[in-house]
Amino acid sequence: MSGALMPGSILFEFPELFLKALGYTIQLSLIGSGGALLIGTVIALFRVSPIPPLRWIGVAFVEFFRNTPLLVQIFFLWLGLGALGFRYFTTDTFETIFRAATLGMALYHGAYVAEVIRGGLIGIERGQIEAARSLGLSFIQTLRYVQLPQTFRATVPPLGNIGIALIKNTSLASTIGVADLLQAAEVVESRTFRTEEAFGVVVLLYLVLTIPAGLGVNWLEKRMLIAR
């Protein structure tokens, strides 16, 4: 059966290539999101910290990673850090390229996560914090048991948006050689010259990731909603 008769059949002509690529895109997305959440939370805590140098670090981080292009950051992490002697990223193997791309995802989106989490933290009424402190909870305990749990619940929708943006932005990793979905499309296209089909399949595969992710966010949002 020819591709012209059955659109998408190209997926079944290169099943291993596309599946592997999907796997890398998922890995980049999952590790990148986990990293972004972790980095973003830490940076948000820096930004609300009573210690000025921590606040400065937080501001510098957010401004740097939010105000430079993700693609440039990925190139810098891959080539720049290598040139500076960080061996973890240097030797030109697939692993080091993948590491650079993942770290880029986590850092760049972490800056956005930090702003969302910071907004959530400062949105909690002063009175609740006073109540926690008046019970003898320390600053850290108040953050951990009162402020952060409410912040995560309240920020599910904006964090979900960042996560979905991250899934799509993983396509930039192909430019430094990660064999992700976009690169799979390019490879298949160069072998078959069936451009529309190759890229069409990849568009569908991105949707297969992002639409369920969006539904998951909606479900989580309803479940986490705190009645007030």
């Binding site: 109540a131 402190r133 003898g136």
Partner: peptide
């Protein structure tokens, strides 16, 4: 201050319960 606050209970006008 945390040790002191353990020995002093405070009740506020706006209750300030933790909603979660």
């Amino acid at each position: 201050v945390n040790a002191l606050r353990r020995r002093v209970g405070m009740v506020f006008q706006s209750f300030n319960l933790f909603p979660h």
